[in-house]
Design a protein around this nucleic acid. Sequence first.
DNA 1: ATCGCGACTTGATCCATGTTACGATGGCGG
DNA 2: CCGCCATCGTAACATGGATCAAGTCGCGAT
Lengths: 263, 263
Amino acid sequence: MSQDVEQHSTHWVGDGQSSVLEGRLGIFVRKLLSHSRLSTDDQAAIAALPFSLRSMEPNAYILSEGERASICPVILSGFAYRQKTSAEGGRQIVALKIPGDPLDFQSLYLQCADHDLQALTRVELAIFSLKDLEKLVAPRPALARAVLIDILIEASIGREWLLNIGRRNALSRLAHLLCELHCRVEQIAKKRIEAFEVPLTQEQLADLLGLTPVHINRTIKTLEETGAVQRVNRRMQLGDVRTLRKIAEFSDIYLHQNEASKG
Amino acid sequence: MSQDVEQHSTHWVGDGQSSVLEGRLGIFVRKLLSHSRLSTDDQAAIAALPFSLRSMEPNAYILSEGERASICPVILSGFAYRQKTSAEGGRQIVALKIPGDPLDFQSLYLQCADHDLQALTRVELAIFSLKDLEKLVAPRPALARAVLIDILIEASIGREWLLNIGRRNALSRLAHLLCELHCRVEQIAKKRIEAFEVPLTQEQLADLLGLTPVHINRTIKTLEETGAVQRVNRRMQLGDVRTLRKIAEFSDIYLHQNEASKG
DNA sequence: ATCGCGACTTGATCCATGTTACGATGGCGG
DNA sequence: CCGCCATCGTAACATGGATCAAGTCGCGAT
């Protein structure tokens, strides 16, 4: 498992607001801001957290089922996923994580992991220590709440996936996933995204959607005929998001974007 | 929507420990104790919470998609479920809640519900106010943690359901669900349970497992032939749990029972 | 260049599950 | 006691997606 680890004692000598969002941890702060309101003070506190950097190859295990971890990684770049396997060898991807997403607050509270956590592409992680996190959050209820909201949104996405796999056919299932990915990536990029290259292999798409690779291939072909996606040297690229949304009957409320804190 | 509401200003005049677990809210306390350690003081604090009682008929909506609720119900008796519907009318049950389960901490933090919450059987709910809960939890980190753990476990169950629906065939899918139900019911009952009557109609089972009612019927028949379940006047009853577990290749780690708090 | 290998592509065939249809059962209100 | 209506039971048929079996493409290593 190849991994470089380096220590950062990230100390911004307060050059104002912009550096917080542009610093190494800016993407994490932006992710939290996408669903929670945070004071500039809270934002700065996050950006000032010490962390170690680790980069991992595609398919490397970040955490394995049954392990007990006490780390808390956040994705700085690249993609990762959670997977489970059935006794008969079937594999199911149960969550997809993109840059800015915290990966594992769960294992800080549960004894042992109930799933694997793997790198999808090459991935750069910021790893915080449990202690630092607790010290960060304890006096800052808004931060604790933001983290909780992040967990709740992941659960909401999981429920939508259940609907997707349980009740939609292959075509809209795939279209729905692409819509979700597009939304989420646009959300952290903070700008319109036109042509977006999907980083999953067809086998991974199959494991994510509860289908077989062969059928995924055929479904992509059908989707291509509608003009919703193109394939540029064997990689799928989103084209017409409007068509995709129609095919999937996509509604984004389950992503809970722009949920300003209540009360 | 038929519902009786009555006010309880539940004040136990401290007749010791046992009353906490046997009081009206005892089942909720026991649920939390099944995965978290709580001081007797914390337990008593829960049991002393004021709440209103509401009972609902089967199929009544406890909360509808899109609504913004600020209540927090806990099931005292009966069953409930979360469901989502696709634009084409497909219905998917995405969570099943049993006595002792808190139903909706989520909507205290997210703006609007991304799914419906309905009574499965006749159900009795204890309804807490947001304010009381916040006052309860603020000075008691162990309680805050217990609630968070409850949310994380629900998410873990959701992931297992994804695997179940995405990767298992109808027979093991059904068997798996029955195993889970058995485990969870036994856990709050605090004793072995032999014959357990499944409170779901075949249509509900279908919506839960991503199948059709007709196929559920066939699958129950097959399952009956293995001796794992019987049907007593049109209701399914668990018989041989061992056989069920073998068919489902069931492992209960994802339920995270007996997770004593870390650290 | 050429080999090897992982990922993609495609066709033929199969089968688990969906669909449709209709009758039986049983609980409940009048 | 009767009739209604939701649910269950089951048979015949349809089909989406799985499985099996060959390729093909493209890239990195030799």
